[in-house]
Structure formats: C-alpha cells, structure tokens
C-alpha cells in the first residue's frame, strides 16, 4: 500500500508574523520557513504505518516555490521514501491544491492520503475535505488515532466533547490532528541520507489544472493592541467605571 502525504512550507511557528507595510499580506521575505506542524504529524503517521508494515511506500508532495524542496527533504529525512514538487510561484488556494492533488493521486495510485488538518498560515482547514469530495473517497478528519486493519482504516476523530470512531474503506483520506503523534526529529544522519532520495519536480502548468484564485484578500491587519489595565481604588469606583466608561452594566 502506498501513502501520499502533502506538505506545505509555511512561516515557522516560532516567528511572530509581521504584516507588510501596505497591508497586502504577511511579510515572508527573509523569514524562516518550515514544514506546517500538522503536516509533520501526517508524515510521522505515514512513516509509522510503513514501519509497522501496514504500508510499503510513503510519497510526499508539496506545491510551491523551488525552496519547498527543503521542506520535502525534511520529510524524507523523517522517513518518507521519495518526493514530488509541483512547482509554482503562486500561492494556490485549497481548491486548486485539492485539484492538483487529485491528478497526482490518479498518477500515483495511493490507497491512503494523509494530510495535516490545516496549515498554520491561512488556517483554512479545507484541502483534505475538498480532495475527498473530488475523489469521492471516504474521509477521517481530525484524526487522533489511525489503525489499518483488513483493508479498512479505523480513525478516532477529535470532535466536540469527545472522540468519534469511524471505519473507512480504502482508499481514503485522513487529516491529522495535534494529538495523533509526536513527530520525530530529522536526525543528522537521516538528513544526509535524504539528500540522495529521489525528488521529482513537475511544473504546475504541465498538470493542466485550473488553479485560478476564487478568493480576493481585501486587507490584512495585525490584531488591535490590548490596552494596559488600570487599578481601581474601591468597589464603588469599579461599578462606576463599568457603568459609565465600559457601559457594560
């Protein structure tokens, strides 16, 4: 069984994002980029399934600029077998990503696609679901536990107030939630070995997919700064301020 894991290169989670001076987006020039943390969890889960013998090959794919190669190399250092980079200078929306992934699924024929539940840059939480819809496959989203048993995959889903168990026929889509696993480090020997693993680059245009954006970003702004608090002298003053200044009582 082959597993496909899409990974996204995003602004590193340690970096405080800075809105561009013209409000058109977030500054990414010269900013440290790394693999979307939920995608790391997805890679880890796929590698563990292979290590357990439930899968035979893990293929990682990224859609983006040339530097997304680094992200793919990291995934291969974690244990993925090979990588595909779909090269584009645009930052495609989830629907376009799902369409590209559909063509790759048709080409590669995986039985399982494991994705991060969302990317930490745009927090869309849509690609996995859209891909399931386009392919007509079952989906186990927000997975916190995955078991492949007798040609089916059992998924524990994190839902409001508890977990839900679903059993999906293969092929299927899984999106990884935070508690699914703790990803391993890419060790130095494995990073060295990953340099020699195969990485195929496909120009996005060659796939013949309509990637035109459907969304328009109107403006991007930083959250309003929180005002410093004040100390009040008495309960009476507090009531007075709540009534006349804050106007909440």
């Amino acid at each position: 069984m082959k597993i496909l894991v899409p990974v996204k290169r995003v602004v590193d989670y340690n970096i405080k994002p800075r809105v561009k001076a013209d409000g058109s987006g977030v500054e990414t020039a010269g900013v440290k980029m790394s693999m979307n943390p939920f995608d790391e969890i997805a890679v880890e889960e796929a590698v563990r399934l292979r290590e357990k013998g439930a899968a035979s090959e893990v293929v990682v794919v990224s859609i983006g600029v040339q530097q997304a190669q680094d992200t793919l190399r990291t995934a291969m250092a974690m244990g993925a077998d090979r990588a595909i980079l779909v090269l584009t200078d645009e930052s495609p929306e989830p629907l376009a990503v799902a369409k590209v992934l559909k063509t790759l699924v048709e080409k590669e024929g995986p039985s399982l696609v494991v994705l991060g539940k969302q990317a930490i840059d745009d927090d869309m939480n849509a690609t996995g679901q859209m891909l399931a819809g386009l392919l007509g496959w079952g989906q186990g989203t927000f997975a916190s536990k995955v078991d492949v048993v007798d040609g089916r995959v059992n998924v524990s889903r994190e839902i409001d107030g508890g977990t839900e168990q679903v059993s999906l026929a293969l092929p299927a889509i899984i999106t990884a939630d935070l508690r699914l696993n703790e990803p391993r480090y890419a060790s130095l020997p494995n990073i060295m070995k990953a340099k020699k693993k195969p990485l195929e680059t496909i120009p996005a245009a060659d796939l013949g997919v309509d990637m035109a954006p459907r969304l328009t970003i109107v403006s991007v702004a930083e959250p309003a700064e929180r005002k410093a608090g004040i100390k009040v002298g008495s309960a009476a003053e507090l009531v007075e301020k709540l009534r006349n200044e804050a106007k909440v009582i």
Binding site: E182, P183, R184, Y185, S187, L188, P189
Partner: peptide, 16 residues
C-alpha cells in the same frame, strides 16, 4: 530529545 532530567525522551536521537 533528552529530557530535563538528562534522560532520553520518547523521540531521543543520539548525536553524530
């Protein structure tokens, strides 16, 4: 992946 107590944790990787 060495813990605060100096013992290897679950994702321990030795140096190289």
């Amino acid at each position: 992946g060495v813990g605060r107590d100096g013992k290897p944790g679950p994702n321990y990787q030795p140096g190289m």
